[in-house]
């Protein structure tokens, strides 16, 4: 019912209440009453049960990818600190019964 798939706005109705939106080749009419900011042709929007619920600024896609990379970097840094914890575990404190093979 609710997987949010982004679609591209092709045209907007004269009264501004709905838009024709392309979802990877499938066209749908979406209502625009609850979208967060006004949309124009060419924008990407998130659909939920026939309503546009958010206009997605293209730069935010890059932001998410940058976030993944940052999470990875921090995980790597945190891992150095984890080294001595693991040393302790190996020294006989028990812990995880199964390693990853």
């Amino acid at each position: 019912m609710c997987l949010g798939v982004p679609g591209k706005v092709l045209s907007i109705s004269d009264d501004g209440m709905s838009a024709q939106v392309d979802f990877f080749g499938v066209q749908k009419e979406l209502r625009l009453d609850i979208v967060d900011v006004p949309v124009t042709v060419g924008d990407y929007v998130l659909n939920h049960v026939g309503f546009a619920i958010r206009r997605i600024p293209p730069e935010e896609v890059g932001e998410t990818l940058a976030l993944f990379d940052q999470i990875l970097k921090e995980a790597a840094a945190g891992d150095l600190m984890a080294e001595d914890v693991r040393g302790e575990m190996a020294a006989g404190k028990g812990g995880g019964e199964s390693g990853r093979g």
Binding site: A75, D79, A82, V85, R86, M89, G94, G96, G99, R100
Partner: peptide, 8 residues
């Protein structure tokens, strides 16, 4: 690595 380091 993160879960293993948690040890539980």
């Amino acid at each position: 690595r993160e879960v293993e380091a948690a040890g539980r």
